[in-house]
Design a protein around this nucleic acid. Structure first.
Lengths: 232, 232
DNA sequence: CGGCCTCGTGCCAAAAACTGTCAGCATCAT
DNA sequence: ATGATGCTGACAGTTTTTGGCACGAGGCCG
């Protein structure tokens, strides 16, 4: 096993633990000495991994992923930068902040001729239409989806009727002027689309929905007549 | 100097040459043996770099960039994927293709839990408004900008008047329903915005415009009262 | 065609980098 | 205070990388 493969493995092991884990445990899982484990941790930290180690406690990884060395064409870098600009201007504040942070990391390692250009990039994303205000934050919905949590929502539909229902949120679709939450509705026993700005209140039910989110999305797409790679 | 730093240096040296360069020249610049240079080339090729080598000729790099190992949070990966989805659905075919290619490279190295999710990603970009057809391809404009070439355009303005002028294109702005080309107009001696769908014809003048594109963009932004990091 | 230039690969000894053991110090939790 | 655990340096042993050499192949030009 090469060292770079081992570093990736270490990150994946760290990601699996939800509580502090001791260096001895990690070293044993990887089949290396504790001293080498310390060196590997130091290397990952030098590469930007947020790993905290505390004597008497163990290691905790701030959830993150490492992309290994990748080659991109000039056009692909431009597409990447344009994509981040789209997201930072059109998505909700939380994901926009993620986009800005990610772009900063990438720009820090671009060569001078691209770095000097990118603040004045060839492609700019102009402002989008104003979106209606959210009563329930997208980040709340996002966390619920990511954690596969059922939520209870008060929803005002197009005829202005308010209803309360328990749903299993599984996808969020961005259009120019609206955002749609795709969810399985336990009231209607089928998938329903909810405009996020019309969700007046939402709270966690306190339990996971009994299906994998990816499975739900696949079923929704099959029902919509959509393939998984061509959402149009 | 670490090997990974040396590989990055080699790529930057290759990028500097516009014609084939011999291995002996590269090895001397890096202070390594020719045998090691051959190994480094093979390593970069294995990492996806498009380097062609021909006996009696030398090496040519298809223009590309390497991003070294980078750490991203889950949110940042999601922002990246959403950005690519935006671009692949809303930009012109050429840059959309670049987005699709770049996303494929990234997905190939994401861990299983993100990879299995990403075709069914938490965030989807819905279709945008239909854009008016282009008579002059965005890729043509893009190349002219990138190569800092003056172009002559036939432009039909909002009162339907056709005019011919020589312009220095420097930026392209994507809105929901239009795309604007930002250029210095030699007819008006000032910056002008041209809707790309109203450019009826365009051709290269055959010479570079006498200013750096980045400088033009900065001046345009100052004139617009825009900072370089917050285009709103 | 021949000569020169150059890419590409294998082999092996030397050089460099990595690993594991040991020792010592510091911090945290109970 | 004690046990658990992070962190670092030193050094011998192990593994990987490098450079020199040899050989074969291909492109370019006179």
């Amino acid at each position: 096993m090469s060292r770079s493969a081992r570093l990736l493995d270490l990150l994946q092991i760290l990601r699996r633990y939800r509580h502090p884990v001791a260096g001895t445990v990690l070293a044993e899982e990887l089949g290396i000495s504790l001293r080498t484990l310390y060196r590997d941790i130091a290397t990952l930290q030098a590469q930007g991994a947020e790993i905290e180690g505390e004597a008497g406690v163990g290691y905790v990884l701030t959830p993150s992923y490492m992309l290994p060395p990748l080659m991109f064409t000039h056009g692909e870098i431009e597409a990447l930068i344009l994509g981040f600009r789209f997201v930072s201007q059109r998505a909700d504040p939380e994901i926009a902040r993620d986009a800005v942070n990610a772009l900063a990391k990438i720009e820090a390692v671009l060569p001078a001729e691209l770095r000097s250009q990118s603040p004045t990039a060839a492609f700019l994303a102009g402002p989008s239409s104003d979106l209606p205000p959210q009563k329930v934050s997208i980040d709340f919905l996002r966390q619920a989806m990511r954690q596969e949590q059922a939520i209870q929502v008060d929803y005002r539909d197009l005829s202005d009727k308010l209803s309360r229902r328990i749903i299993w949120p599984c996808a969020l679709t961005y259009f120019d002027e609206t955002r749609l939450l795709v969810a399985w509705c336990t009231l209607r026993h089928n998938f329903r689309h909810f405009r996020t700005d019309r969700i007046e209140a939402a709270e966690l039910v306190g339990q996971r929905y009994p299906r994998r989110r990816a499975t739900l999305v696949r079923q929704w797409q099959q029902q919509q007549g959509l393939s998984s790679t061509a959402v149009k």
